[in-house]
Design a protein around this nucleic acid. Structure first.
Lengths: 203, 203, 203, 203
DNA sequence: CATGAATGAGGCTTCATTCAT
DNA sequence: GATGAATGAAGCCTCATTCAT
């Protein structure tokens, strides 16, 4: 039934790719990109090392794919915001809780940090992440310029700054989590919301 | 000249250690912890690979020492703030420029990110960084509680939150730099200063 | 149509074998025995990798079969000579042009050299090639002993020597081609024909 | 005594390089370039695999060095001829015996064939061998043009042809040896010398 | 104190071969 | 008969670490 036939099944191929991606994400998170060996990844993926190379050209292609997957996930989050009704400030403040949760997630954070530090020495990874970020900033700006935003008429550079600071804030939470594992969502939110309010209102 | 005894010159030993630390910082910055080999470090330090092991047990011990040194540097920054006169808000807003500069520095950032992602999988590194952070938060709180602070009388959790958010903000700048290399200090400051003002004033 | 029985069609089997042999010859020529993978061969043969193993036990069996086929081809060349009329010297000199062409052919040469160097370490290949050579020398001697040969009455060892030298000469052309790709047929023939004349006349 | 000191000893380095070269020649001969693994080479060289890479960038660099070594050996042979007195024909006929011996040497031949077939698919190896051959032909032509040569005044293309044929002849002996291991020097010489005489005299 | 030659485990990747379908 | 997904041993190479000098 589920396994109809094995002959050139794109369904299967896709599922195998995901298997590898999941396993690799896991391993990179736990051991880092360099620390995780293909052997471990293949074992985690319940697949022979050699077979992984039917789906990915090499180890780097795997992290590339992981980044791409991340991108898609992020876009969907932005889409949620873009489709939300009402004043932007409220929408964003409501979204804060989830945003903090996501960025305090220790597992996701470790993987993201791993990719970021890999980017510092791996041109290709850097470019992928940067392309991703360009898009994220574009979507964010769209959000800030839409109806119901208190900052929709501010000049470009000021929006750029607000976006950078806001992104820094959330990105920085991943770092906080590593440096201060006790940090919890509620604590963060106390000061975070006022800051978000500042960033989404004219100064 | 100074103590001509041949055996164990602690002066020399210390200088040799620093030589290695400087070289290693440089290499880790450029190539990352895993990317930098002992061979390269030893060449940069003008010292044989073997000899490095007279000062450090292994590669990991080197990054531990670098972290420790980083800590000391950070404390001196805090001391500057603690000794500054006048209303805290002004002191901090003045300090912002330097703070942004430091956290946008691409080289330092790369090394820091490297250490952070190493922390995710290396208990010892994690503990060192966390200990450092505990101290940093303690010093920061001291700052917020001192005379001339508009938030000195706020309850503990609220201060904790403000500190975490502020730290996240600056830490996040390192990430921004990787994801958006064009980002410059002036742009960041536009929105950053209002945010700092928010964080240092009662809501 | 021909014998519609589904099971074991020797006709088809034979054609499949040839398909593989042609593909493999091609691949070995281009990439060498070790350089050509079964994947490439199977793609060239328009056949799945697994299916090849229905016709050949393993990769080595393929090169064995190729050698065998080469042998047959060579015999047919000799037969042409054996059936030619007229004084041997003339026949051979006429055949020279084709012989040079064949041995300067870069593709065939690459494959032959491949097999020769494989022979140096692969007993089975060596024996096949040697058996082939024994037969070639036998046919050559038949040629030299026939009517119209100026050397037909010379003692055995002398004929053996002439044969060996002549074979060395043509074999060596394959090597020349690798070492001196500019070498062309006309140039070779200038000195080759006098040498052949020497070899086919009493000293 | 022999081991004066280990500090940066170019003597030692050279001897280590040769150790590797000898071992690799041996292994390539026995197993072929692809068949011989670095592990086997390192074991044969009594040296760890890793250490080999202190002397050679990679496996290919080893075969390059072997080819270079071969070149030098060949040049010294030509020098012997160039320095010999008397009519060229006599010099060469005298040199024949050694030449045949060398080209019938089964070990050297296997290695040479290996390199030749590797050249068919490895550009760099091919270029090295070809450069070598250009030089060999140049030296040979020098020989044919010198005093005491019966062919010194022949036109260029005719000399080129004679050289190519002569080189083919000797190169072909390596092949003969593989295909006909019984072949011995004396047998070859019977017909070889008249051929050489033909090649070194006007037709 | 200092060197750098030497080691060898382990990393990524390839590829001949198998087998369920 | 035929497929191609899957295996895993083995290949080349790197690099942290050791040790004789």
């Amino acid at each position: 039934m589920t396994t109809k036939t094995r002959r050139q099944d794109p369904q299967l191929a896709q599922s195998r790719r995901l298997q590898v991606l999941d396993a690799a994400s896991d391993c990179f998170r736990r051991r880092g990109y360099h620390g995780a060996g293909m052997a471990e990844i293949s074992k985690t993926a319940l697949m022979s090392p050699g077979h992984i190379y039917n789906y990915f050209d090499n180890k780097e292609a795997i992290i590339d794919a992981i980044i791409e997957r991340d991108m898609e996930e992020m876009f969907s989050v932005f889409n949620t915001f873009l489709q939300a009704e009402g004043p932007l400030l409220d929408v964003m403040l409501d979204g804060c809780d989830d945003g903090v949760d996501k960025h305090l997630d220790v597992e996701k954070g470790a993987l993201k940090l791993e990719m970021l530090s890999e980017a510092a020495r791996n041109e290709k990874v850097a470019l992928a992440l940067q392309a991703n970020d360009v898009e994220a900033r574009r979507l964010m700006k769209q959000l800030l310029r839409r109806d119901g935003s208190l900052v929709r008429d501010l000049p470009e550079p000021e929006l750029d700054s607000r976006i950078s600071v806001m992104f820094a804030l959330f990105g920085g939470l991943m770092i906080r989590r590593v440096l201060n594992p006790q940090l919890d969502r509620e604590t963060v939110l106390i000061a975070l919301k006022p800051v978000i309010r500042t960033l989404l209102s004219p100064f």
